[in-house]
Design a protein around this nucleic acid. Structure first.
Lengths: 182, 182, 182, 182
DNA sequence: TATGAATGAGTCTTCATTCAT
DNA sequence: AATGAATGAAGACTCATTCAT
């Protein structure tokens, strides 16, 4: 029975987001295959990291597509996006933590592309009067991703219940921590 | 001339926050000393990581002390805290990225202690009616730290200007991204 | 369609004489079969090497038989032997290059046996006054084989035309490089 | 005390000429250093092979220089050359056996250069009436080297006494195996 | 029978670490 | 005290080998 590369990537992202220095041994075990097979599918550690990065970015992009980021009410879209992304928060944590991943030009290009989409989204929301214009759209995109990654780590470490995560995230991100004066 | 351990720690934190898997070689070079000297000061990689962690947590704790976290107006305190922490955001990025740092009991204890202080701070703010009570204080503390770490990474990568960071952070964290209906 | 073991052996000898460290992969490809099939025919690398060695030595022995080494005029016999062996020079190159082949007792025995026949041949030639007696017969046999192997390599590398090789070899070996004073 | 790279190269050539598939472990042990040190001096197996090749070719070239190949009586020069080269015959054996060494352009260039010198030498000898003109100078050079390599192997395997080697080689090469009719 | 797919075994390589100066 | 040089230890990698079809 053939090994499913995507399931290997998912396992790898899971392990690596927890511990970026994880041995290939551990990753292979998590994927339920041998180290040798891991090497056959992804020739070398670097290739594996790159593949996991591409996988994560693809999933991220898929989520942006799925919620039709470029259309519709921005706030509702953002809520749907969070619901969709939180289950993959570990992938975002991986993308956030593995900073030197972006030495790879292909990966960097895709990363920038998705980043641009999200920035454009927030910009549109600002123009439509849904998001505060005092905050740069780039920073909104950045912060949104930071919180997503943080949720990913918190879930993995058991500090946050997956169930509550999406709500907590969107509430804080949209409404802020300060209580509004009545 | 004797080597200053703190400058080594700072250099190490800088390198390691960018790349948690950085070799001792690179760290030693960043600190301007030889690998052998690095080894004499911190006997082993683990010891170095632990020392950097302690250093970062101490600085974090110092900031909490300096703004008198346990007293005074919580919102004003939070603003001062951000101003004080943003210059050290790289240290927070290090603390956030080096997840397996907390295998060390001593470090974990200190980490928990500072975390508790911040959670208690948010709880107090909630009780005083300054922070929203719908969001768990633990999540507020978590998210606050996530944003801080994200700012650290963004500054290091040149995606965010150090000058604007503190303002952007506090504005988003307190007020959220959504525009309040007039 | 059944695989012909001898064609595999020939391909293997060809590849291995060029590169004694060639992988089974390369050999299988040269033989036009899969690695797995190669393995079924020859159970293991060592077995393959042994088989190629036996094959080469058998061909060598066949040549000695064919020219009736033990009988007739030694010089004429040697000329016929060279004509007969040069087409198989690659096999000699293999036998010369794969030094550790002779760890196998069976192979070593056959190798010694053929070597003895050639040495005896030169000895006979010396006794009959055809070969110089100042040179040990063992050395003559050795040098003869060295030149044969050298020709094999030179042909494979395109440094020597197969057509001229036999003549050049026998002329040098019998007459030497020095011009005889008239 | 610093490791002498040349002594490592000599040990490596010795081991590798005997067994081209020798492990780095064995080579390091023969050189009296650790595998790690071997890797520090020559970064990787390929680099080591290349270095050994360059070393051997340099020694070969040094011998050509030392006997002033381009000047003086060719036969006497050849005799001196043999005396000089036989102690390094193992290096020649290495150069002859490691055929795929010449994938490296630098090595190939040096190899061709030394080959050209020897070919030119034989050509000169032919023009001066010392070597037979029926045999291509290129073949003389080739055969000369083959015998040298063969001597190297024979000595290593104990089939030939180092003491007698030079004499046997030069006598056969110059005079041939056939007894000259009185 | 023949092979693509998977893996065990063992080498290559690179660290972190130690030694000698 | 500080470092270049050397090495032990352990992970990365690549074979030869086996398995399932």
């Amino acid at each position: 029975m053939a090994i499913d590369p995507d399931s290997v990537l998912k396992a790898a992202a899971d392990v690596l987001s927890r511990n970026p220095t994880a041995h290939l041994d551990e990753i292979a075990r998590a994927a339920g295959i041998s180290r040798a097979s891991l090497h056959r599918i992804f020739p070398g550690r670097e290739a594996l990291l790159q593949a996991v990065g591409m996988f994560a970015l693809r999933r991220y992009g898929d989520a942006l597509d799925a919620v039709r980021l470029e259309h519709g009410d921005t706030e509702q879209t953002l809520r749907r996006l969070v619901d969709r992304l939180v289950p993959d928060a570990a992938l975002c944590a991986f993308l956030a933590g593995e900073n030197q991943l972006y030495d790879d030009p292909e990966l960097l290009a895709l990363w920038d592309q998705q980043g641009d989409r999200v920035r454009a989204f927030f910009l549109r929301g600002q123009q439509e009067g849904r998001f505060r214009i005092e905050l740069p759209a780039g920073w909104l995109a950045e912060a949104f991703f930071d919180l997503l990654a943080g949720v990913g780590w918190a879930i993995q470490d058991g500090r946050l219940a997956p169930r509550d995560s999406a709500h907590a995230l969107i509430e804080l991100f949209l409404g802020g921590a300060a209580r509004r004066p009545d």
